[in-house]
């Protein structure tokens, strides 16, 4: 059997699974009426960048950013953002981790077994920062829509602030939502992800996923899970978790839809786009941080060559790692 034969066979299989369940999923799509006087929306997102690697140690910097938006007839107007930048050093060697503080040990435990634990640990740290900032915002603002990037699932629970965020939002009458940019859920039980199943449903509306899915997530999920198309011409449905005002999803989606009317991001809250832009700036600041590393390492007496060799690519790989050479070789040699 040749590779071509194998390809054909696998494709046949894919097509079979694709059409495994043809009957329409049981869903009740409800209409969304965008709020005429929308509340302010505070969007929260985060990002990280690896900076330096020495043995099994990785130095990274993470950022959480929150940006409040007021929507008027003239457009989207931000107020001063909240930004938290933190550096973190993670170890992937258990012997050293065991000598670290409780927080680092939690990070290590949460990502144990991962192929690339250093990435997972820093990503968890990023989520931790985002949660802390979301909590701060939830306590500071009232009667706003607090939109977080991603689902309202707390994994691992020990590092998360979601429970506190929900409580603070309830106390301050904030509508808490988590909007996932891309979702691969199969909550409706189809072979295709829910987003793709819903793609054929036109118009503007929201639909709650089957209760069975939510019950499976019990204890980890802090809200109700919906899919929503927040504008009639939006290119896709988004997973939206509603954490507060759960008894009034019409209100929540009306508020969210008003903030998702930007021609730049139809169907996706504009504030979240801007929070994302603000968060990923941390990656663009790598050179500034790298300068700091070079200077500080020089003070500490490290040879420049050794320092430079430890500088990393975006995902924590060493810049001079051999795979980088192989990649370049494969690219350049025709």
């Amino acid at each position: 059997m040749t590779v071509r034969d194998e390809l054909r066979e696998e494709l046949h299989l894919m097509m079979q699974y694709r059409g495994a369940r043809q009957e329409p999923p049981p869903m009740e799509v409800k209409a969304i009426r965008p709020a005429e006087s929308p509340a302010d929306l505070v969007a929260v997102d985060g990002s990280y960048a690896f900076l330096y690697n020495l043995g099994s140690m990785w130095l990274a910097v993470a950022r959480a950013a929150a940006i409040p938006y007021t929507l008027t007839e003239k457009g989207f107007h931000p107020r001063p953002p909240h930004i938290v930048d933190r550096a973190i050093l993670v170890w992937t060697w258990e012997e050293i981790v065991s000598r670290q503080d409780e927080f680092h040990q939690k990070l290590f435990e949460a990502t144990r077994g991962s192929n690339e634990p250093h990435k997972e640990m820093v990503n968890e740290f990023r989520k931790h920062l985002e949660g802390a900032l979301a909590l701060q915002v939830a306590q500071q603002y009232d009667s706003v829509v607090l939109a977080l990037d991603g689902s309202l699932s707390a994994i691992p629970k020990e590092l998360d602030h979601l429970e506190d965020v929900v409580a603070a939002c309830e106390a301050n009458e904030n509508a808490l939502v988590g909007v996932s940019k891309d979702s691969f859920l199969h909550a409706f039980g189809r072979s295709m992800p829910d987003e793709q199943v819903l793609a054929s449903v036109g118009g503007m509306g929201y639909v709650r996923v089957p209760k069975e899915f939510e019950s499976r997530q019990h204890g980890l999920l802090h809200g109700d899970v919906y899919f929503a198309r927040l504008h009639a011409q939006a290119p896709k449905w988004f997973r939206v978790d509603v954490g507060t005002r759960r008894d009034d999803p019409d209100f929540v989606f009306g508020q969210l839809a008003a903030h998702a009317r930007s021609g730049l991001s139809l169907g996706y809250p504009y504030g979240l786009m801007e929070a994302h832009r603000l968060a990923v700036l941390v990656r663009q600041s790598r050179e500034v941080y790298e300068d700091e590393i070079l200077k500080e390492c020089a003070h500490l007496g490290m040879p420049v060559g050794e320092v430079a060799a430890g500088l990393t690519q975006m995902e924590g790989r060493r810049r001079g790692a051999f795979h980088e050479y192989l990649d370049r070789f494969a690219r350049d040699v025709k």
């Binding site: 940006i67 003239k74 457009g75 989207f76 931000p78 953002p81 930007s262 021609g263 730049l264 832009r277």
Partner: peptide
């Protein structure tokens, strides 16, 4: 998007 409709950070 137009004059003053979309302000970012």
């Amino acid at each position: 998007p137009g004059a003053g409709t979309h302000e970012g950070y």
